[in-house]
Amino acid sequence: MNAILKASGLKKYYGTEPNITRALDGVSLEVMQGEFVSIIGTSGSGKSTLLNMLGGLDVPTSGSVVIRGKEIGKMKDEQLCVFRRRNIGFIFQDYNLVPILNAYQNMILPIELDGNQVDKEHLNEIIHFLHLEEKLSNLPGGLSGGQQQRVAIARALASKPAIILADEPTGNLDSKTSQDVLNLLKVSCRQFHQTLVMITHNPEIALMADRMIRIEDGKIISGVKDKMMTGGMRHAEK
């Protein structure tokens, strides 16, 4: 099966020569459909930049990102937004909930953006699982960090995107809840054959993935190929 997500030679430089910062320095990777990949690295290693590039939120200095056979760097802003809405669900480290909408409205926003019907049963399941029933009508300002994070996760799952890009999705949850939430992510991904790329600095969480990519100083140091041959590839391909 083809890779659903393919990045090649991604570079992101800030500044000019003497004081140049290389946030990403030639990163290439492939993610298969249905795969769960974790990206691990210390803070400042470029993992968030990489994730933003994969989702088309940031423009690389050079290199390309191809999603489902389409190079997103070549799309216009308008097209990219529509493409993103249909294919990618983001879970941000700082949630990025729309402050003027309540939790429920935030969750269904990506669905409404595309003018689609909300799969109520599915959504209720997610809400139930994430224990958000009581908080649905709260504005993000009235939610704790953990609750906001759960709303952000619900938002990413509700529209059943093909790819979920998660940036420290459990950063604000205690370790027990983190496990639960991650498992929910995994379960959902299995069910809808979704691809999950997750950033974390926590090795324990990273290990839950099919494959773990380690990134340091803007470069991938391990995890691009080896596991793909054994674990990930096997279940994905056979």
Partner: peptide
């Protein structure tokens, strides 16, 4: 910031 958020979850400039 809010418009940025909307954009990340796929609201197009036209919208």
């Amino acid at each position: 910031r809010m418009y940025g958020q909307l954009k990340t979850i796929g609201a197009s400039p036209k919208q």
